[in-house]
Design a protein around this nucleic acid. Structure first.
Lengths: 214, 214
DNA sequence: TAGATTGTTAATCGATTAACAATC
DNA sequence: TAGATTGTTAATCGATTAACAATC
C-alpha cells in the first residue's frame, strides 16, 4: 500500500465508504460493484473506482469488490488496524462527552487520560479514568507516551499548550478549540469547529427561506 | 445581497473570515487589505477577493475593507443577523454538552428544548431547560415552532424521526448521528460525523509515521 | 495627482465524470 | 466463450491563482 500524495478530498470520503461497507458486511453481502455502491451512496461509480484506485486495485474485473476485503483494506489505509492512544485536555461538558463515547474505543482509540485546570474536578471519573490537574500533564506524557491530544479547552489555553504537547511526543491534535493551531511539520491537526458548522447550517437555512434560489 | 449559486466551498470559508475579522475588530483595527488578511490567514489574497466578490463589492479600491462593515455583512450572509431556535434530541453526554454551550446563544441560536427516550432523565435541567420525554416532542413542536433540530441520538433513532420533524416545521438538522439522512428539498442537513473526523486524523498520523511522504 | 488596492477577467490547476480497452 | 465490471485514460467541469485595468 503506497499512499503518496492522495488528496484530502479522497481521504475525506474513505470513512463514509467504510461505513457503507460495514453495513453491507453486517447484512451478509459478499460482493459489491461500483455501480451498486454508487446507487447506495449517491456518488458516481466513476468516483468510487477512482478513489479506490488511488491505493491500488482492490477489485476484480467482471466481479466487483469483495466487501470484506475492501472493508479491511480501507481500515488499514485509515490506520484503524492498530491502536491509537489519546488524552483529553479540558474536562468540561464536551471533553467528558468525548471521553464517554464508547465507539472510539471500538475503533482502537484508547482513552488514556483527561486533564483540567479546575482543581475541583480532580478525581472525578470519566469512563473509569480519573480527571487529573493540568499541572500533571507534562509529567504524565513523559511517563506515558500518547499519540493524540484532544483539545476541548477555550482557545486561549489551546494555543499555549501546543508546543509542550508536541515536544512530549503528541503526533496528532484533534482540535475542538475555536482557533487555528500552529504546529511543526509532521504533527497533524484535525479541526472540529462546531460553531463554523452551525453557521453553515444557518446560511443554508436562511438562503432557502429567503431567495429560494438553489 | 443576492446569493445565487454560491459554492459550499466559499460558504465553508466564511465562518473563518468572520473569526479573523472579529479578532481584528476587537483589537481596534479599522481597515484591512486582502493582502494583510492573506498573510494572517494563510490563504491567497486572490481567493479572499474572489470570495467576497461573490456577494458584491465590500471593499474600496486603494483602501481595502472596512473591518466592521465586512464583519457585519458576512454575519448577515450567514444568517446571524436574526435568531434561530433549536432543540436537542438526545440528552446523552454530547446532547447535554451542546445544550450547555453558551456561545451558540451569543450568536443568536436560542435553546428551546431537549428531549430523550430515557424517562429517568426527565426533569433534569440543562442550562435552565428541563429534559422532556421524546413522546412530548411532536406536541411540543406544534405548540412551539422551532427552526433547527440537533440530533445527538444513535443512528437507528435518527432516521425514524426525520419525517416527523420536517412535517412539524423543522428547517434544518444538525446531525451528529452517524448516518446519512434523507430529507425533502428545502430542508437543510449539516453533518458532524465525529468518528469520520477522527479517522482522517488517524490516516494523516499513520501516513506520516509510516512512509514519511507528503 | 500618485499610490494603493479592489473588482474582474483570464490562466492554471485539480477534481470529477465519461468512456472504453483490459481482463476476470 | 460471452457478459460483467474493473482499471485507467481522456474529457469536462469547477475552483483557485495570477494578472491587470478600473478607481478610490
Amino acid at each position: 500500500m503506497q499512499n503518496k500524495g492522495i488528496s484530502q478530498a479522497v481521504i475525506g470520503r474513505l470513512p463514509r465508504y467504510l461505513r457503507y461497507l460495514g453495513d453491507l458486511r453486517e447484512n451478509g453481502v459478499e460482493r459489491v460493484s461500483s455501480q451498486e455502491l454508487s446507487a447506495l451512496m449517491r456518488v458516481t461509480a466513476s468516483q468510487i473506482r477512482q478513489d479506490f484506485n488511488n491505493f491500488g486495485g482492490f477489485g476484480q474485473q467482471g466481479y466487483g469488490y469483495n466487501v470484506d476485503y475492501l472493508y479491511t483494506e480501507i481500515s488499514k489505509i485509515l490506520g484503524l488496524d492498530h491502536e491509537h492512544s489519546f488524552i483529553i485536555i479540558g474536562a468540561g461538558n464536551l471533553g467528558r462527552a468525548l471521553g464517554n463515547y464508547l465507539n472510539f474505543e471500538r475503533r482502537g482509540f484508547i482513552f488514556k487520560g483527561i486533564f483540567d485546570m479546575n482543581p475541583e474536578l480532580e478525581g472525578i471519573e470519566v469512563r473509569g479514568v480519573k480527571i487529573r490537574r493540568i499541572e500533571e500533564l507534562e509529567g504524565f506524557l513523559k511517563e506515558n507516551p500518547v499519540e493524540i491530544a484532544v483539545l476541548t479547552i477555550p482557545k486561549t489555553g489551546a494555543v499555549g499548550l501546543v508546543d509542550m504537547l508536541v515536544s512530549n511526543g503528541i503526533r496528532g491534535i484533534w482540535n475542538f478549540a475555536h482557533v487555528d493551531l500552529d504546529v511543526p511539520k509532521g504533527v497533524q491537526v484535525e479541526n472540529v469547529h462546531l460553531s463554523d458548522s452551525l453557521m453553515k447550517l444557518s446560511y443554508n437555512i436562511s438562503r432557502y427561506n429567503g431567495s429560494k434560489k438553489k
